[in-house]
Design a protein around this nucleic acid. Structure first.
Lengths: 331, 331
DNA sequence: TTAGCCATGTCCAACATTCGCGAAGTCGCA
DNA sequence: TGCGACTTCGCGAATGTTGGACATGGCTAA
């Protein structure tokens, strides 16, 4: 509980000199510097950064909004964000929104009340009007997201996946989507449709099964396909977790993956390559996204006008063992 | 950028009255209350919580130290902590230590410099001496951890797992451990040894393969067993991720799990029940641990002396498909 | 000698809020 | 009317730090 005054007293110098010794040591003689440091040791002084931040009118903290921290893709991005923040002297306030706008709003309040300097939002939805004047970066978002964002090209990436399946000979490609109104769902579905169209295949509504990006929903969605008169020979899933869930169901019902049915994911989470079979998926550069989002946010906090910055990072298609040509190609 | 003075001016009352209207409205007449609220609306006032915290000499934030946020067990615990913190008006500062004490120290600094009110540490290692006077709770720790802690009985839980394997008829039970000096490794290894001793089996050093709690290390460790003259008929892994990695390797080398070799995990992460085969494992009550840890920390921050609190929560053994009797029981 | 520079000290303002104290006003009751 | 009890509110202090304005005294270079 010692403060700067006690240090000054113990060192036999003025408060100003102690402050200078800490914030701009080049202005202080070595002699005084030593006295101050000794005194700091002696009284066990730790500067009260709460007071410093208050005076600077900055909290040196940023909020990271994430829909679900237990999703390994998000936790990877967050790890990168935290790493960068730590380097720059910023703290990361974790905001697990559980997809509710109420919780999201509570974290936005933290910025408005000066407890945080900005927000990184790891979800596609664009925020309500209240975001107007606060430093804000959207990561892992979608095309058309207003404001600064770091993302991948979901449409092109999904199209590439489906193109690949079609190139293997699949003509009946199912898709497991996220919730209908989720922007990721919309973008990726468009990529799917574009791929079908380019190959001259017709889009069939019954080949779309809705999930919510969890393994559990992937299982459920996969079950729906069994009720069709004709199963798809390949299933493109909008994320890895649903793909893993789907594979589990398909295998449990006696199908072999990929010999009987191919499955693809999206994200390339750590578990994908250890799965049986190892998952063919579209890798997102999670670390890069996190790092760049943090850097971008810091520049915005510094006052740069980057409100129109849109960074689209490349994805990498990782072909593993969960895909192969269909069992009975028509040709 | 409006402050309380502008509100006071706009409302025609004193600054103190505005402050009271916000923090203890029952002390203010309805008339003044209305004037204040109208003024707040009019000038778009948001209280500066940084100033409030400064004056209260509290930051209303806690640091959560985690060795690796991408581990789904930890992220589950963190989710529970965050949930509780949010309810109580506290923020969670994420501290991913990557197992380095340097990073850990930087986060401890945050408490000493008043940027956080306390620490929840999600790793077994006990901290250096500097933790003396700061509110501190250890969650997911081990027996013998000094200070307040919430944990499970690792020794008994591991013993129960190995007891079960032995009861199935296994006489040669391998174990994949964490790093040798990790307290979890030490405790769980003790449980393993106790179980062997109780069954009259001898402990063989070659049946211990060292990993580091990652899937990758689980793969590696499993490979070591192939170099033995006689493979174990069951492998007890000290966490789920290593078990999943081990299963991957065993299957890749042509063994069937569990028919040829049984495998068990620890934690019961979400992926365990979707794996092929679904993993037999010891479930830890992740949510409960997080919730209780947060509650305990808050009480300590409030000033209660709970330095000797040790809560040991029950685990639940979940038997799934990765275990069965050995291929050629001796009897 | 003097101008200029450097390290330091002194003093005060500023940051936004809360709290203790006392003043002013209101009400009820004798 | 007088008095005490109570409510409501304003004033000023305090929180720990930084930074600017300015003075001081010692030093060097011109």
């Amino acid at each position: 509980m010692s403060n700067i005054r006690e240090v000054a007293h113990a060192a036999g110098v003025s408060v100003a000199t102690v402050s200078r010794a800490l914030t701009s040591p080049e202005k202080v003689s070595e002699e005084s510097l030593k006295k101050v440091h000794d005194a700091i040791q002696a009284v066990g002084y730790r500067p009260n950064l709460l007071a410093r931040n208050f005076r600077a009118a900055k909290s040196f903290a940023v909020v990271v909004l994430v829909p679900d921290i237990t999703n390994p893709f998000f936790s990877q991005v967050i790890q990168a964000i935290e790493d960068r923040a730590q380097q720059k002297g910023y703290a990361v306030l974790l905001g697990d929104t559980r997809e509710t706008s109420k919780r999201e709003q509570e974290y936005v309040n933290r910025v408005e009340t000066r407890l945080a300097d900005g927000v990184i939002q790891l979800r596609p939805q664009s925020m309500s009007a209240s975001t107007q004047n606060i430093p804000w970066v959207n990561a892992c978002g979608c095309e058309g997201t207003p404001g600064p964002s770091i993302r991948v090209d979901n449409i092109a990436a999904t199209k590439a996946i489906v193109d690949y399946l079609i190139s293997l000979g699949h003509e009946r490609v199912g898709i497991i989507s996220g919730l209908k109104d989720n922007p990721h769902t919309i973008d990726r579905l468009q990529g799917y449709k574009e791929s079908l169209a380019a190959a001259g295949l017709v889009f069939e509504k019954e080949l779309v099964a809705e999930g919510d990006f969890t393994m559990w929903s992937g299982q459920n969605a996969a079950k729906q396909f069994f009720q069709l008169t004709q199963m798809p020979s390949a299933i493109c899933c909008m994320n890895d977790e649903m793909a893993l869930g789907a594979i589990q169901t398909l295998k449990a019902r006696g199908l072999r993956v990929p010999e009987d049915i191919s499955v693809t994911g999206f994200d390339d989470i750590n578990y994908a390559k250890y799965w049986d079979p190892a998952l063919t998926t579209m890798a997102q550069p999670a670390e890069e996204i996190g790092k760049l989002a943090m850097d971008l946010l810091l520049r915005i906090i510094e006052g740069e006008d980057l409100s129109k910055t849109q960074m689209v990072l490349p994805t990498e298609f990782v072909i593993r063992r969960s895909t192969c040509p269909p069992p009975h190609p028509r040709s």
